[in-house]
């Protein structure tokens, strides 16, 4: 059996398991554990009612789905027809290319930012300054994309502050919020602004876990601060970096929905169409539910394969990966 990462902690869990004697008869266990089942019931109701049962609705991807006349049980099966149409659809291809470009771009220009930020925070000797700066950089994580985009609009949009300052100094204004050519830069800066600070948390934890004696020993041996960074700090956080890198690769088809959906009308679909917006527009907006569901299902299946492959890669590299056999 595999169990995700989430299946945390060896220690207490294992000892607790060990304490339970060989499995009792299921009736005895049911009599003992019914309060636990009762506690899990509301959660199970919601998880099944709004996650797993709707998941079954993906069969419409293989149907000629007629929402009013046929429904999910009365519609004709058409096999992989929708998928064939999908792969020949230039707009789907564009969404695929945009998604992968954005992932690749952000891997280079977003991914290192939280690491650099964590190194900076970690290097601050003043506890007070560090915790003040932490409070500031975590904050935007709690803003919605609507807010972040509204804020960016006010700063970099056609009527925004930057244009305002440029114009009053006799230059031409800029409008980065509607420019498809610079859109990838825009969404990456938005992602950095909103999420890089909070993303630094996990690297900070890894940095804090490095044994300070190592630094002392290295310093005594004459290693300067850069050599200590290179030979102790970076190797110390390498497992976390590799893990998050792999996770990101496994999540390559996910670049987020809201950020792109909200800016689609301003920038145009040419630059801003990604997988998730394609599903929305091809499915819900036009009413081709079966077609949209096919696109969504394709993404889900490929995404699952990518995650499994990424985890496999992590194991092969000797890292713990996201989940492990237990």
């Amino acid at each position: 059996m595999t169990s995700p990462v989430a299946e945390t902690g060896g220690g207490p869990a294992a000892s607790r398991k060990a304490k339970r004697k060989p499995k009792a008869h299921w009736r005895a266990r049911l009599r003992r554990d019914w309060p636990l089942l009762l506690m899990a019931a509301p959660m199970m109701l919601l998880v099944w009612g709004f996650w797993w049962i709707p998941s079954l609705g993906n069969v419409i991807a293989f149907q000629d789905y007629k929402p009013y006349t046929g429904g999910i049980f009365g519609s004709r099966l058409v096999g992989f027809t929708h998928f064939q149409v999908l792969f020949a659809d230039p707009e789907f291809m564009r969404a695929l290319i945009n998604t992968l470009s954005i992932t690749a771009f952000q891997l280079v220009f977003y991914f290192p930012v939280p690491i650099a930020l964590a190194l900076l925070l970690h290097s601050l000797a003043s506890e007070r300054l560090r915790s003040m700066l932490q409070s500031v950089v975590y904050l935007p994580y709690f803003f919605s994309w609507v807010l972040v985009i509204a804020i960016f609009q006010q700063m970099l949009g056609g009527a925004g502050l930057l244009s305002q300052v440029l114009r009053s100094n006799g230059f031409e204004g800029v409008d980065w919020m509607t420019d498809p050519d610079t859109f990838i830069l825009l969404v990456t800066s938005q992602a950095i602004w909103k999420e890089a600070g909070f993303g630094a948390i996990i690297f900070l934890a890894a940095l804090a876990a490095i044994d300070p004696n190592q630094y002392e020993a290295a310093a005594v041996d004459g290693a300067g601060r850069w050599r200590r960074l290179w030979h102790i700090t970076l190797p110390g956080i390498r497992p976390v970096i590799v893990l998050l890198l792999i996770l990101r690769l496994g999540d390559a088809l996910n670049v987020g929905f809201e950020q792109f959906f909200l800016q689609r009308s301003a920038v145009g679909s040419q630059a801003s169409e990604v997988f998730d917006t394609f599903v929305y527009y091809s499915g819900i907006r036009t009413g081709d539910f079966d077609y949209g569901a096919a696109a969504g299902l394709f993404k889900g299946v490929v995404g699952l394969v990518l995650i499994l492959a990424a985890n496999k890669a992590a194991h092969m590299l000797g890292e713990r990966g996201v989940y492990s056999k237990s």
């Binding site: 169990s3 995700p4 989430a6 299946e7 869990a13 607790r16 398991k17 339970r20 499995k23 299921w26 266990r29 049911l30 003992r32 554990d33 019914w34 636990l36 089942l37 899990a40 959660m43 199970m44 998880v47 099944w48 709004f50 996650w51 797993w52 049962i53 709707p54 998941s55 079954l56 609705g57 993906n58 419409i60 929402p67 999910i72 998730d276 599903v279 929305y280 499915g283 819900i284 539910f289 949209g292 569901a293 969504g296 299902l297 993404k299 889900g300 995404g303 699952l304 995650i307």
Partner: peptide
């Protein structure tokens, strides 16, 4: 762990990390 039905409940939750119902099935549901 080890309680009655524990595995079923656990997997119902943990699989939510890797398998998503998708926008359209949820919308229709």
């Amino acid at each position: 762990p080890g309680s009655f039905g524990h595995k079923t409940v656990l997997f119902s939750v943990l699989l939510m990390f890797v398998i998503f119902p998708g926008l359209i099935p949820v919308y229709l549901w």
